[in-house]
Design a protein around this nucleic acid. Sequence first.
DNA 1: GATGAATGAGATTTCATTCAT
DNA 2: TATGAATGAAATCTCATTCAT
Lengths: 215, 215, 215, 215
Amino acid sequence: MSSGRSAISREKAVPDKRRLILDAAVRVFARQGFHACRVSDIADEAGVAYGLVYHYFASKDEVLDTLFLERWNVMLALIREVDAEPLPVRDKLRAIASFIVDSYHHDPDLMKVIIVEVTRAANSFGQTHLGEIREAYELIGEIVTKAQAEGVFRPDIEARFAAMAFYGAIEQLLTGWIFGLLPQGEEQFERAKWLVVETVCGGLETSATGRAAPR
Amino acid sequence: MSSGRSAISREKAVPDKRRLILDAAVRVFARQGFHACRVSDIADEAGVAYGLVYHYFASKDEVLDTLFLERWNVMLALIREVDAEPLPVRDKLRAIASFIVDSYHHDPDLMKVIIVEVTRAANSFGQTHLGEIREAYELIGEIVTKAQAEGVFRPDIEARFAAMAFYGAIEQLLTGWIFGLLPQGEEQFERAKWLVVETVCGGLETSATGRAAPR
Amino acid sequence: MSSGRSAISREKAVPDKRRLILDAAVRVFARQGFHACRVSDIADEAGVAYGLVYHYFASKDEVLDTLFLERWNVMLALIREVDAEPLPVRDKLRAIASFIVDSYHHDPDLMKVIIVEVTRAANSFGQTHLGEIREAYELIGEIVTKAQAEGVFRPDIEARFAAMAFYGAIEQLLTGWIFGLLPQGEEQFERAKWLVVETVCGGLETSATGRAAPR
Amino acid sequence: MSSGRSAISREKAVPDKRRLILDAAVRVFARQGFHACRVSDIADEAGVAYGLVYHYFASKDEVLDTLFLERWNVMLALIREVDAEPLPVRDKLRAIASFIVDSYHHDPDLMKVIIVEVTRAANSFGQTHLGEIREAYELIGEIVTKAQAEGVFRPDIEARFAAMAFYGAIEQLLTGWIFGLLPQGEEQFERAKWLVVETVCGGLETSATGRAAPR
DNA sequence: GATGAATGAGATTTCATTCAT
DNA sequence: TATGAATGAAATCTCATTCAT
């Protein structure tokens, strides 16, 4: 989740106005929240005229829809990609956790918007994008299912529950950073990737052996 | 999280109007979302006049604040209580997971409102109640810290990260139910309590032994 | 305008609630303005229950109507009385100016309310009490007319204009005190009575002679 | 006070909407009073959409503020201008009285609004514009002070009291017209200018000589 | 007389969206 | 493409008044 947006804008020396608006919207949505901001705030932040937002987007909703889908689809692609490779399950989950944490590292505002305004918004955008959101959970669930089939993961914890626990743990870490409840920084982000995989795969208990922390 | 509200209303054959409004607000917030509903929707749902909402609450915000604090404080009390008892860490975490899942079982609307409108709402009510939210995470963190000191939990996974992972896993299960992505029912709820503790404490991997699923 | 209200309340050791409400209303209207205050503010200030205001008065308007009429009728009575006596015109005008200034001295809040909410409120209470207001101006006009007939006052300045100028000058002094634009105090009030009569009768110019300031 | 508004709108064949709204507001405020009218009344009177009032003005208050300041500043400028010229005090006061009366003649609604809603509104707009209101009184007071220094005006009547009496007399004449208590018309207005100056400068008494009424 | 909960019409203000230029 | 004035539906909140006790 670290490439898309900046890559696109890097391609053009003069970013087009549409991109300008989307990038401005991320900052404004993150700062004020989707409901609390006005379309004029987005236009002001982007330095474009009010009506131009409506030239490129049919509505305020569509701006958020676009932002969400751009990112979420990159994530879905990555999960599929990871799943297709012949890697140990820990590496697969590690790759997913890394991707999400890196996404936050690269563009915390965008991830804040996605988490706060979409993935938990059961009455608005969460419903709209239920299909995409569900797909992510299911893809992760499939990874778990395979690991169970291979005997690496316990079969008594249903895959879809496990997938939810895994994803929920990551999202909660991001929530902690977003709310300022957890320390941030390059080192913290790296550590978080290891921690979440270690916790969910290895468990917090000491019974298991030979798990070394990174570095 | 299963006693307070209903207990109070059970004490009176004729529930007071204030309670009526709060209970109606839960249903309306859950159904439409805080932003999408009007104060008149709450009044209509409660069967009272418009202005009475403002007789008892200074604003629409205060209605949600009240609902959140009523419930959250019960949870904080329970966590403190659990922490004070001389129980194994698994039992403590199990008690917390049980409490939250039971809360959802008893009053799914209220828990939906709390999760959707407060604990993830970084720009509105989440900020307002940051202190209470943080406290819950910290209390769980302390339970983990003690388990680490006792040698039951690994010391290399920081307690506050572990606490976030644990809480995040539970909240994600509730989110799954709220979005209709996970099956619900008495049995599912019981199983979920076991699963989340098992996942976080024992880990998903098969290396550990002798963990029986409930029932 | 210095007797009525206090006289009434002095008659009873325990003032009746109706009086309590009226006196409280004066303070509240003066402090916040008629429109900006709520009926509950009056009740709170009076220390009585909300509904009691409506037991004694049909509406919020009626409270102000009552206050105004109580005072204004005393003033009308005084002007009539003064006019009936065989006094020089200066003494008559002096008596009227004295009465109004003393009224302010004794109960500035009430006079503030009367001036701010009634005598200049052309679209609300001013219209309601137009009859009483007009009568005051006409009574003063009659005093001027007589003075003209006696040859003491110039006949070329129409009596009703002169009456308006005289009354307007006094009301403006009160306005100055109400707005904090003129210094107040026993001495200032006494001086004001002399000044306004001297200005209107003798004029500001030096041509006339033998006019000594009081004290 | 006779130029500004109409001049501006005369410059454009199609008056801008902002001006349209201000002019409509004058009529509506004068007809119904500031408190009794709704913003939609202003919009309807102006023939524009509801929201346009808020496009140009932050609030209903700001509409009145704008109207008051536009006019009052013209008056302040005139008083300063008059004061700077080497005229006899009678001519200066005559110019001021003329200006105010002409303002009423030209736009009685606007002057009604200013007097009824601002200069006597001690708890609302009067306080907001206290600085500007005070300045007018003080400027007139300075004119009186100079006349006293020149020996034309009696030194025993304090200048600021005299200024208040003078201004109050004029405002009361306007109040009389506003309430329909005094006859109006070109001739009446001309006569009023003379009367008020004559009353305040020369006094009502006959002792002084050689004062001819106009025409 | 006295209380204050209950009512609901109505006000201001906001802001997504449209549209003429 | 680009602009921002113009629109008007809809929301929150206020508060005078009523009424059961």
